[in-house]
Amino acid sequence: MEVRTIKVFTTVDNINLHTQVVDMSMTYGQQFGPTYLDGADVTKIKPHNSHEGKTFYVLPNDDTLRVEAFEYYHTTDPSFLGRYMSALNHTKKWKYPQVNGLTSIKWADNNCYLATALLTLQQIELKFNPPALQDAYYRARAGEAANFCALILAYCNKTVGELGDVRETMSYLFQHANLDSCKRVLNVVCKTCGQQQTTLKGVEAVMYMGTLSYEQFKKGVQIPCTCGKQATKYLVQQESPFVMMSAPPAQYELKHGTFTCASEYTGNYQCGHYKHITSKETLYCIDGALLTKSSEYKGPITDVFYKENSYTTTIK
């Protein structure tokens, strides 16, 4: 009895394709271990004539594949690729409408935090270190965002349907971005203890939790000093293409032309909904596939993004 075979390709990165001759009487799992086709788990399936010449994702289970996976995804987590594939199996079914010149995501599976993050990423200057993220990001900007969303979920250790947080998501993504040249110098002034300067680099240099107003941050924000008295913390120097200011959701007025974009969060910790506000020729609110415009805006804002380049204080 002759062994019926077909020729397929296996890959971990969709760049390096490895030619395989597979036995049609055995499952993919018996031949390769966990195997995925377009995100779908085909591990328990036997090869079919229609699979001839198709590319299958496999887990990096030998040295060659491990090197290829690390170079593309910059992670050695053995569960990463499987999590990416199972997320992709959902995100490829989502709709990605162009809204006001940006790629958004039609609401499904509690994905409003991903839509808000995706919209924000198209408006701030950011370059990702893992080629996987950078490639998928370019495709997302062009309207094909399924891979990018699935990668975000995998890097953030999230599953489809789980509630997510924009600030946490951005923080994970910033860790995989090139923020080497970003720098922030802060000064804390206390009447009792004097003053202390701190220099922050990388992710810490672009994120701040405690106030939404970048102007206020430049002037000074009140913080408790270690001595128990009130101290003032203010920005001395900022070198970065953008800054992200966050605070627990509270009524906040966004003035046209003073910011790049913002995240609105309605609801409580267990259950809520994100919308995205962007400042173009007027203010726009993007909620999944829905767009509304207004000249002014007041609502429960939790993150505001500002364009920056270089700032030095005039406070002496």
Results as ranks from 00 to 15, higher is better:
I6C: 12
I6M: 12
V8I: 13
T11Y: 09
T19A: 14
V21M: 13
T27M: 12
L37F: 12
G39K: 00
T43H: 12
K44C: 15
I45M: 12
K46Q: 12
H48R: 12
S50Q: 14
H51Y: 04
H51E: 08
E52I: 11
G53H: 13
K54D: 12
L59G: 08
V67R: 11
A69L: 11
F70M: 14
E71I: 07
T75L: 06
T76C: 14
P78N: 11
P78Y: 14
L81T: 08
M85Q: 00
N89S: 10
T91K: 00
Y96A: 05
P97R: 09
N100V: 07
T103S: 02
S104K: 05
D109R: 04
A117Y: 00
E125Y: 08
K127N: 12
Y137D: 02
R141L: 10
E144N: 11
A146P: 04
F148L: 13
L151Y: 06
I152R: 04
Y155N: 06
C156N: 03
T159L: 08
L163P: 15
E168Q: 15
E168T: 15
E168L: 15
E168P: 02
T169Q: 06
T169R: 08
S171T: 14
Q175G: 07
H176P: 05
A177Y: 04
K183D: 03
V185Q: 03
N187W: 03
V188Y: 08
Q196M: 11
V203W: 14
V203F: 12
A205S: 06
A205L: 01
M209D: 11
M209H: 15
S213I: 00
Q216H: 08
Q216M: 09
Q216K: 10
F217Q: 02
K219S: 12
G220E: 05
G220K: 03
V221Q: 04
Q222C: 09
I223R: 03
I223V: 14
G228Q: 08
T232N: 02
T232V: 14
L235Y: 02
L235P: 02
Q238R: 01
F242E: 00
M245G: 04
Q251P: 14
E253D: 10
C261R: 04
E264C: 00
E264Q: 09
Y269W: 15
C271E: 08
G272F: 00
G272L: 06
S279T: 08
C285K: 09
G288V: 02
T292R: 11
K293E: 14
E296A: 07
Y297G: 00
E308H: 04
T314G: 10
